[in-house]
């Protein structure tokens, strides 16, 4: 979890020019860090490459739009990192 968070936080910091020390596990990528959807594509691209996965952004967006999930479930960084860990584990299974 911590290494996943460090990798994700570094990606966000470099991609969006956000000071690294302001990025916390509890940070909401959209509400707290102000990352918009286009910047998040860059972040997703970097995360996909770094972890060898494909973040299911379309599925997540659909679930949020349908009221089946909240943005916090996917875009609070500690939750995002848990999803990434799950995807990495599923890839190796």
């Amino acid at each position: 979890m911590s290494s996943t968070f460090d990798t994700v936080a570094n990606i966000i910091s470099e991609t969006c020019d956000i000071p690294r020390d302001t990025i916390k596990p509890e940070s909401h990528a959209i509400d707290d860090l102000g990352i918009d959807s286009l910047d998040f594509l860059d972040i997703a691209f970097a995360i996909d490459k770094a972890f060898g996965i494909k973040l299911p952004l379309e599925q997540w967006t659909q679930e949020v739009n349908d009221g089946k999930a909240t943005t916090e479930q996917y875009f609070v960084l500690k939750n995002l990192c848990a999803r990434i860990d799950d995807l990495v584990a599923a890839k190796g299974a």
């Binding site: 594509l41 691209f45 494909k54 299911p56 952004l57 599925q59 967006t61």
Partner: peptide, 8 residues
């Protein structure tokens, strides 16, 4: 790269 809902 072919991501979910985007491509590069």
């Amino acid at each position: 790269h072919e991501g979910s809902g985007f491509a590069v």
